[in-house]
Design a binder for these strands. Structure first.
Length: 451
DNA sequence: TCTGGGGTCCTAGGACCC
DNA sequence: TCTGGGGTCCTAGGACCC
């Protein structure tokens, strides 16, 4: 499959753009954008192999995810294993039934973060604007580089980036290109694995018409079902439907969104400074927890974990959420928003405890998962300016100092050394972690994998 | 076939204010 | 007389993505 390498023609595209009959009018960016999506091929599989060349590295049929005996699911599978029908999010046990010869390894969390940063660092040398969309996806905005890179086409540039990333990080990536993020994203799925696909300017609709609606990002199982009930399966099927009908069927906003999406309309920018909106940590237990005491113990650990991440990023939070999944998979959550932003483990844990008590009062059954989340995040420095609360507020200065002291100890001796209410030894992890990256999550134990 | 963990965004209802 | 209307914040739940 040859990549499209057609040269973009700015003059032509200006004339052949969107027809003015498009309702509502979609404001166009001032000029043609050149966007690439860099997507690592089976990233978790690649990293697992690089980290363990003798083990995972030798397994053609490789599944990365939870242990088969536990409650794990597949995070990523090698292309060879995918041929057997193995998919991510599938229970590991099911994956092994489909592909009994597969080797299952745990998620190498630390290495994933580290290598993701390596890829990003190289991309930042190659492109003016880089945004990490996830651990294995990066958007590049190359608008304005036409002259700089000439006579290279966007596809040529993509191939060059692919080569450089492979040489410098040993990670194989695929790249999709187009005039909008959503087009670049869809092009990348066509490029996979280890390829490049650029949708030429003006060919967006023709490209979209080759797709199923289910392939559009944002169209998930639920919407697919609703669409199919109306006889709509392909993008082509839906393109003739008036916006009013889509709105009548799927709601005003969803309908309008879908109308725009099947036309590839996407005004979103590649924004390198996009800030985090929430921080959370959750655990599915190896066996369901029955008592409030057991749950509270785990709750404090989770609160401490998200608290450390929060402070590591120099943030404060106003909302604490506790999530509980009962043995029957029913998921419930309670949230509490406080007037002033908080950051200390003590305060987070205290609010979380209240929320857990409420949840348990409503339904006291064995729990399979517990989680703590923080949202309403704000910059710590900015908030200190408008601090109205001295003593007697939600959180005391003493609480904050204590948490910072704990962070300092963790920085030197490793996370997990100090946990409120108990003392444990340093984690027996592979790496003693003399320098811990700022937003590294405190490892529960040295072991990735479930629980 | 027995369902992970990290996120983002949307909806809908109630509280509260003007 | 029962009964407005918009805006914002908060909460619970769900869809969706990787």
């Amino acid at each position: 499959m040859g990549p499209e390498a057609r040269e973009e023609n700015g003059r032509e595209s200006l004339l052949s753009r969107k027809p003015p009959t498009d309702v509502p009018p979609v404001p166009e960016p001032p000029r043609e954008r050149r966007i690439l999506l860099v997507d690592c091929d089976a990233f978790f599989v690649q990293v697992a192999r690089l980290e363990d060349p003798e083990g995972a590295g030798r397994a053609r049929l490789l599944v990365v995810g939870g242990s088969p005996s536990g409650r794990g699911v597949v995070t990523s599978a090698s292309y060879e294993a995918r041929a057997f029908g193995v998919r991510s999010a599938m229970p590991t046990a099911q994956a092994l039934r489909l592909c009994p010869e597969a080797t299952v390894v745990g998620v190498p969390r630390g290495a994933i973060t580290r290598r993701s940063r390596e890829v990003r660092a190289v991309l930042e040398e190659l492109a003016p604007v880089v945004q990490a969309a996830s651990v294995d996806e990066f958007y590049l905005d190359l608008t304005g580089t036409e002259r700089l890179f000439a006579p290279e086409t966007l596809a040529d540039t993509a191939w060059r980036i692919r080569r450089t990333i492979l040489e410098r990080t040993r990670i194989s990536v695929s790249l999709g290109g187009g005039t909008r993020r959503v087009i670049a994203k869809l092009a990348a799925s066509r490029a996979k694995p280890a390829g490049v696909y650029v949708v030429p300017t003006g060919d967006e609709q023709a490209f979209l018409n080759t797709l199923d609606l289910a392939e559009l990002p944002g169209v998930g199982p639920s919407l697919v079902k609703a669409l199919r009930a109306r006889g709509l399966v392909r993008v082509e099927d839906a393109i003739g439907v008036q916006e009013e009908w889509l709105q009548r069927w799927f709601g005003e906003r969803r309908g309008a969104w879908l109308y725009r999406r099947i036309r590839g309309a996407d005004r979103s920018r590649v924004d390198p400074a996009e800030r985090r909106k929430s921080i959370s940590s959750e655990r599915t237990f190896f066996r369901d927890l029955e008592t409030d005491e057991e749950l509270e113990q785990r709750l404090v650990e989770l609160a401490t974990s998200v608290g450390a991440t929060l402070r590591g990023k120099g943030l404060r939070a106003r909302t604490v959420t506790v999530k509980l999944r009962d043995h029957d998979f029913r998921t419930r959550q309670h949230a509490r928003t406080v007037p002033e932003p908080i950051e200390s483990d003590t305060t987070i844990a205290e609010i979380a405890r209240t929320l857990l008590t409420e949840l348990r009062a409503e339904r006291r059954v064995p729990a399979r998962l517990l989680g703590v989340g923080l949202s309403g995040l704000g910059d710590e420095a900015a908030e200190r300016q408008m601090t109205l609360f001295e003593e007697g507020g939600v959180e005391s200065e003493r609480d904050r100092e204590l948490s910072r002291a704990v962070d300092a100890i963790a920085e030197r001796f490793g996370h997990g050394t100090v946990v409120p209410g108990r003392i444990v030894g340093p984690s027996p992890g592979r790496r003693p972690a003399p320098e811990v990256p700022r937003d590294r999550k405190p490892g529960r134990s040295g072991e990735p994998g479930p629980d």
